[in-house]
Write a protein that binds this DNA or RNA. Structure first.
Lengths: 132, 132
DNA sequence: GGGCGATTGAGAATCATTGTCAAATGCCTC
DNA sequence: GAGGCATTTGACAATGATTCTCAATCGCCC
């Protein structure tokens, strides 16, 4: 089944460390940056473990994952409801935005062309007030 | 200066080959797939050249470039107006969609938070009629 | 035809991400 | 609290896309 089997997911020291690292950031960070932060804090966590943990958190919907323009995966803790991001392309400052208009629009576009089981990705980039 | 003068862009055999390859596809292809096609056709074009050419075409706005879910860059020739894509996640069939609603929405979201110089990316994924 | 800068190609180099597999750990049962 | 066992971890190799290097070629203009 594609329906996610919740699975056990044991709370280990490493997983807690990654979760805390995420909590200390306000914007998107790559797995490598998170790994570096943990290193500096003295937490010993393997890089592969950071990747694995981030993926699981993303699957569980506890963090957002998106691709920066050069294709690198970046993560950020987030509210649980469906939303999108307004990201400053200079400093990375991020605002969560949402609105039924887009959701409705994507759904109707998909329906119009007979597409089922629809999902979408939407990110907005710009210069934040501080960087303009 | 960072602002690079576009420059002439010489029409070479290789660039023509890549352009023709793109013309023969209706959906998104990776640089590697395009390179393979050229190989099969007997055209001798280096992989690095295919990458370079695709990037230039994308910069010039003659092709669309987007990232598949696993971060790979994929390209497709496209109409010139601003639009988005409805992509079948099984077979890759693509439909170009557009609508002022989203454009308006993203602009107003950005304005509301004081962001300037706004751009956005939006892709819709689903199962096309043939794959459902 | 010649000059010359743009372009190409082959392969090395980079770099994020994933796979491997033995060792370590968390949890459950007794 | 000890033992059994599946999950998780970590160090490092492997993968795979993309970029870099640089000498050889090519296209354009005179």
């Amino acid at each position: 089944m594609t329906s996610t089997d919740p699975g056990p997911l044991r709370p280990t020291r490493q997983r807690r460390a990654v979760a805390e690292a995420l909590a200390s950031f306000a914007d998107f960070r790559s797995a490598q940056e998170i790994h570096d932060l943990l290193r500096q804090r003295g937490e010993k966590v393997g890089l592969a473990t950071v990747y694995r943990t981030l993926q699981k958190l993303a699957d569980a919907g506890e963090v957002d994952m998106l691709r920066s323009e050069d294709g690198e995966a970046v993560y950020r803790r987030c509210s649980e409801s469906h939303h999108h991001h307004l990201v400053c392309r200079h400093c990375g400052a991020t605002v969560e935005v949402e609105g039924p208009a887009v959701e409705r629009w994507t759904r109707s576009m998909a329906a119009e062309h007979g597409y089922a089981d629809v999902s979408h990705t939407l990110e907005i980039f710009g210069s934040c007030p501080a960087c303009s």
